[in-house]
Amino acid sequence: MKVLVPVKRVIDFNVAIRVKADGSGVERTNVKMSINPFDEIAVEEAVRLREAGIASEVIAISIGPRECTETLRTALAMGADRGLLILAEQDIEPLTVAKVLKAVVAEETPQLVILGKQAIDDDCNQTGQMLAALLDWPQGTFASKVDIKNGRISVTREVDGGLQTVDLKLPAIVTTDLRLNEPRYASLPNIMKARKKPIAEKTLADYGIDATPRLKILDVREPSKRRTGERLGTAADLVGKLRQAGVI
């Protein structure tokens, strides 16, 4: 069975975000970019499935500018077998991404698509669910454990009250939570090998999907800053302050 893993190129999670003064967005020039951490977990899970003999091939796919090739190379170095880059210059909405992925699913016929539960840039948490809807597939979101047997997949999900396990018919969609696995570091030989793995290239136009955003982003602002606080010497001082503030 083939597994498809979409990967997004985002500002590295360690970078301090700066909002542009003109309100047009956040600073992206000369900023370290990385694979979205949740997608890295998705790649790891797919590679483990192949290593366990459950998956036959892992295909990484990225939609965005040419630089997404680097993101795909990261996935290939971790063990994905081949890549697909779909060139798109503009920012595209999760629903559009889901539509493109649906078209790729029709071409590649995977039994499983594993996505990150959210991208740490727009924090939308939508794409996997939307893809599941468009395909009429079941979804196991926010997964912390997956188990595939006899054409079905059991997914343990991180929910508000604890953990919920659902049993889904394959083909299915899984979105990853942080505790699904700990992604490996790609070894140097694997990074070298990844350079030789194939990356096919397409454009959004090849899929005939209108990528015009429907939500209009009016501007991006700095959140209000908290005022600097006070250092207190002892826990007794703290209790005094909290009483004064009337919170305890």
Partner: peptide, 9 residues
């Protein structure tokens, strides 16, 4: 967006 480091309108 960005873990609350920016607000999008």
């Amino acid at each position: 967006i960005y873990a609350g480091n920016a607000l999008q309108r």
